[in-house]
């Protein structure tokens, strides 16, 4: 029951500081931007002066699967940035302002405190992702061609795993550093280093979370969900849970020391 109270506190707080309104809206805008600009590319070129006389530029026909991957790549850069910026102060800021002391002076389990935050933010991120991809899916069906519900849900579910890892990573760094800026910096750094390592050791790290997007594209074009995709999603989930567990431990030791 204590967990529910903490969880409700988080939901209420995120509602009061309007995160429940602006995060979904921004994610929707991000995921819709690319499909729309791709569709209107000829008009956009025309309106900025057009092609030089006689130039021929074939705009390639886009497959629906390619277009939804464009949404994902937009989410992977700016979307991840938004998620990190939203989460960067959640524990670090509370410790700075003393709110966490107000909460933790009561007999509150550290694990409950962390996991309530984790679940409340996961809910926010997953709902935003769902809305964003839903609108993007709607536009793709109108403008480019059909993408089935199954394909949509595959993209949503497996990409959600990646964002879950990002949320967990940010919460982890929240317990390590006291400054929100450092939290954001190290989270982004870690994600970048992870993607570099994945590229260098491609032959060994088949199941690295960074490969999720490429497996999603693979499963869209082949029409079935590969075992690699499941394994990668599993690895991502296990990593996220480990990170949360670790942050609980670190947080406990730090708070004891203070």
């Amino acid at each position: 029951m204590q967990w529910m109270t903490l969880f409700q506190k988080e939901l209420l707080e995120n509602w009061r500081n309007k995160k429940w309104i602006w995060v979904p809206l921004v994610i929707i805008l991000l995921s819709v931007m690319d499909p729309l600009t791709t569709y209107y590319l000829p008009q956009i070129i025309d309106s900025v002066g057009g092609m030089p006389e006689g130039a021929v530029f074939e705009i390639p026909e886009m497959e629906p699967a390619q277009v939804i991957m464009m949404s994902l790549s937009q989410l992977s850069s700016l979307g991840v940035l938004v998620v990190v910026l939203v989460l960067m102060g959640t524990i670090a800021g509370e410790r700075k302002s003393g709110v966490s002391e107000l909460v933790l002076v009561k007999p509150v389990s550290y694990m409950n405190y962390i996991s309530a935050k984790w679940v409340s933010y996961l809910l926010l991120v997953w709902v935003s992702l769902f809305l964003g991809l839903l609108v993007s899916w709607y536009y793709i069906n109108i403008l480019f061609g059909t993408l089935t519900i199954g394909e949509f849900l595959t993209v949503f579910f497996f990409y959600g795993m990646w964002l879950t890892l990002v949320v967990s990573l940010t919460i982890f760094y929240n317990t390590v550093f006291k400054s929100a800026g450092l939290v954001a910096f190290f989270t982004i750094l870690t994600i970048m280093v992870m993607s570099i390592i994945t590229q260098i050791f491609q032959h060994v790290l088949d199941w690295s979370p960074n490969n999720l997007s490429s497996y999603i594209l693979e499963s869209l074009s082949s029409g079935e969900i590969s075992s690699e995709l499941f394994a990668t999603a599993g690895v991502t989930l296990i990593l996220s849970i480990l990170l949360i567990f670790l942050s609980g431990l670190i947080f406990k030791r730090k708070e004891m020391a203070v």
Binding site: I21, W22, L25, V26, I28, L29, V32, L36, Y40, Q43, D46, S47, V135, Y139, I142, L143
Partner: peptide, 19 residues
């Protein structure tokens, strides 16, 4: 002139406005 289907663009503008 460039013809743009405003029904397609309207939701984006509305979201921007709500924000």
């Amino acid at each position: 002139m460039v013809d743009i289907n405003w029904a397609l663009i309207a939701p984006i503008l509305i979201i921007e406005f709500i924000l």
